[in-house]
């Protein structure tokens, strides 16, 4: 069991012939992801990396039954690609593009909200169901199957947590990198809701960072009664106010969005906080029991 993607997921890659698109499609194929199509306007009819290329997402969906769009296109085209996926009613769109203008994302998000499509990203590493399927660029070798769900705003910290858990023998169900932009698709609360319904997931690791109030919203959801243990980690504890720390969303403005306010809210809600990734791994171990066999 897992959330959002598994071995039956059929992926269409928007931007499959680009340098990054090609590289990560090959990586996904190597992981076992069932890539069924690519989309590049004007390249319809071609074959790339062993899959048919179409001019439009809608053509690709009709011809191949794709049910997940992996969007890896340059920033000026990202919002449009998201809206195209939504218009083709693809159930899940994953956009890894970094640097999408925020007004573009506001429009794309409005389209997503009015559609049946779920969006992960943009500016995220994508997601991975251990041993079954990955959409995005979480490194292939770090994850192993198990019973811990992971949801994180930061890409590299997603890898850190997965690797730490794997090395300690705590495998994962699905790891979702939701991304660090101020306007994005799935948030912590959305992913926590999905993990709630997934029987295989016994505990959730949540990796937040400064800026915004999505972690506080997650705390509210946990406080209202969450059936699984949540171990949280917040980066940016020492970041000064008013300085944007790389991610467009990672900025403390006024008194909101500080690491402490997030840690306080999560602690009060009943989540446990790890001060370091090592702590997080240990705390997970205490909650899910002995490591599963290697």
């Amino acid at each position: 069991m897992s959330i959002l993607i598994d071995r039956s997921t059929r992926v269409v890659v928007q931007g499959i012939t680009g340098r990054e698109g090609s590289f990560h499609t090959e990586q996904m194929q190597a992981y076992g992801t069932n890539v069924v199509a690519g989309v590049v306007p004007g390249r319809g009819g071609a074959t790339h990396l062993g899959v048919p290329v179409f001019d439009t997402v809608s053509d690709a969906v009709v011809a191949t039954g794709a049910d997940c769009a992996f969007i890896i296109v340059p920033p000026p085209f990202a919002a449009d690609a998201i809206m195209e996926a939504a218009a083709a009613s693809v159930p899940l769109a994953v956009c890894v593009t970094e640097g999408v203008p925020v007004h573009d994302m506001i429009r794309a998000r409005a389209v997503i909200d009015a559609s049946s499509t779920r969006l992960v990203g943009p500016n995220c590493p994508g997601l991975l169901t251990a041993g079954e399927c990955k959409v995005g660029f979480i490194p292939n070798h770090v994850a192993r199957p198990g019973k811990v769900g992971v949801v994180a705003r930061s890409g590299t910290l997603t890898y850190e947590v997965i690797q730490g858990l794997s090395q300690a023998g705590h495998g994962q169900t699905t790891a979702v990198g939701i991304g660090g932009d101020p306007v994005l698709g799935l948030t912590f609360t959305d992913v926590l809701d999905l993990f709630r319904e997934d029987d295989a997931t016994r505990a959730v690791v949540m990796v937040g960072e400064i800026g915004g109030s999505d972690e506080e919203a997650a705390a509210e959801l946990i406080a209202a009664g969450y059936p699984k243990p949540v171990v949280a980690f917040i980066s940016g504890r020492t970041a000064p106010p008013g300085k944007r720390m790389g991610h467009a969303g990672a900025i403390i403005s006024g008194n909101t969005g500080t690491a402490q306010s997030k840690i306080d809210a999560l602690t009060a809600a009943g989540a446990v906080i790890g001060d370091t990734i090592e702590d997080v791994v240990r705390l997970v171990g205490e909650r899910v029991g002995a490591p599963s066999g290697r």
Partner: peptide
């Protein structure tokens, strides 16, 4: 110096926790 915004933020946190003062992100 690090790769990825979250990782670098965490790097600053680790330096501070070890008793140091980060010069930059």
């Amino acid at each position: 110096i690090g790769n990825g915004a979250g990782l670098v933020m965490n790097t600053l946190d680790l330096v501070k926790a070890a008793g140091g003062e980060p010069a930059n992100f």
